[in-house]
Design a protein around this nucleic acid. Structure first.
Length: 425
DNA sequence: TCTGGGGTCCTAGGACCC
DNA sequence: TCTGGGGTCCTAGGACCC
């Protein structure tokens, strides 16, 4: 049976979420900023039309924003996650198998229904229903491989006359579209690979599709080879409708203000350990390895503000999900990499080497009741914090958190009861 | 002065073993 | 003085994604 995938992608997702609850902004240019209100991570179509680029630092375009009356929001991640879940539930009602690929995208497996429905019509039904039920507009790309479905979606977004749906199941249409698009539009081809491909005379997507796979394998890797096969309609990347278990959990953040004191850095690292361990318990996993990293700003003038970056990891003697085990080790790791005299811009922790709960062999000498006691305590702490966020934690993460992030333009928590209220300062 | 956060996969090279 | 070859495991780094 030939395969058919659809890629459904929300338009200007974060900006659309913000507009949804502010009808007064319907035709206004809206941007959403990253943590610390640092750079632009989402733009409404009006903001895109002004030439505001994705990822641009806010300080570089502040005048443009003010002159054009652009409305800016801090990231309200709880709102976007909630809206995302609603969109995904709607898609799950319409398709036999759905892979939630990112907060604003999902792959659908339509192989089974392809012969029974008109695919373009089905794409329009998806668009209509998500618009009507959730209020978010989406585009739909349909093709025999995920890589081509991504490309089809790009086409649907770029050309309004498609009505937001492109069906790329025919070979002729695939080649026509590929000839029009530059190679960097391909899923899996980033800036570095684009540069090297162009040096080889590969400029359009079609150039890449027609390149000999042998040459590609030899010059690059199996990943790029697979991409070429997918562009030729051979499905190599399966739908992952059951999310694979995580292999690592990272918690890190750029500081609202530079950190130069070891005590403040200990608080920050402690905060990240709390977050990471909470996620670990949600995943129902235990981890054995933890690493701590820190760095100064890579953007500043390094003569005035010297650069330093370091990380170190350590292994527990047994896998754990107990915050206290990791706090202890993280603190020692931080001391080992800390150097006085730098203005640190960012730090974080990473947990890795995961074991499913209960799978790992206990240390012969561990007291099993102690172990159970720990997990009960941690579970209780998570439960209480669920109802009253941030009410219970270990003292090491501090109470003032002067290094905490800036979110001065946050929208209210429209759809969730708590979370993300602006910090009182 | 001000530049995000959280992931995955692949590969090369070193350590170690026989 | 001479100083193999092959396998495995681990880690760091590079590339990509949203």
């Amino acid at each position: 049976m030939s395969r058919v995938f659809a890629l459904v992608d929300c338009n200007n997702f974060y900006a659309s979420c913000e507009k949804l609850f502010r009808p007064d902004l319907a035709n206004r240019a809206v941007v959403v900023l990253s943590n610390n209100d640092g750079c632009v991570v989402a733009r409404s179509k009006e903001a895109k039309a002004m030439g505001i680029k994705m990822g641009v630092p806010v300080f570089q375009i502040r005048e443009l924003l003010e002159k054009n009356n652009v409305v800016a929001f801090s990231s309200n991640y709880a709102l976007y996650a909630d809206m995302s879940a609603r969109v995904m539930r709607t898609l799950e009602e319409m398709a036999p198998a759905v892979e939630v690929y990112s907060i604003d995208e999902a792959f659908l497996d339509l192989s089974g229904v392809a012969s029974a429905v008109n695919l373009t019509e089905f794409g329009h039904q998806i668009r209509q229903r998500v618009q009507q039920w959730i209020g978010i507009s989406v585009c739909v790309g349909i093709a025999p491989t995920k890589t081509l479905a991504k490309l089809a979606n790009h086409g649907a977004k770029s050309w309004p006359k498609t009505g937001g749906v492109v069906d790329l199941t025919s070979k002729e249409r695939q080649r026509k579209l590929m000839a029009l698009l530059p190679v960097n539009e391909v899923w899996g081809i980033g800036a570095r690979l684009t540069k090297r491909l162009e040096e080889m005379g590969i400029h359009t997507v079609l150039d890449l599709a027609d390149a000999p796979t042998k040459l590609i394998r030899q010059q690059f890797s199996v990943v790029v080879e697979r991409t070429v096969m997918e562009l030729n309609g051979e499905s190599c990347i399966e739908l992952e409708d059951i999310p694979p278990t995580k292999k690592e959990i990272v918690s890190s953040r750029a500081f609202g203000e530079r950190v130069s004191e070891l005590a403040a850095m200990h608080e920050a690292v402690s905060e990240y350990v709390h977050r990471a361990c909470k996620k670990l318990r949600q995943e129902r996993c235990q981890a054995k390895r933890i690493s701590v990293f820190l760095r100064t700003s890579p953007f500043s003038d390094h003569h005035l503000d010297p650069y330093y970056s370091n990380s170190r990891s350590a292994e527990l003697s047994y896998p754990s999900d107990d915050t206290r085990d990791f706090l202890h080790v993280a603190s020692k790791l931080l001391d080992a990499i800390w150097k006085d005299g730098f203005r640190y811009a960012k730090a974080g922790v990473m947990l890795s080497d995961f074991y499913a709960n209960g799978v790992c062999q206990q240390d012969l000498f561990a007291k099993s009741d102690t172990v159970r006691g720990n997990s009960v305590l941690m579970g209780l702490m998570d439960q209480i914090n669920e109802q009253m966020p941030n009410s219970l934690y270990f003292a090491s993460k501090g109470t003032k958190q002067s290094w905490g992030m800036k979110r001065e333009l946050l929208s209210p928590a429209f759809t969730t009861s708590w979370n993300a209220l602006p910090k009182v300062r």
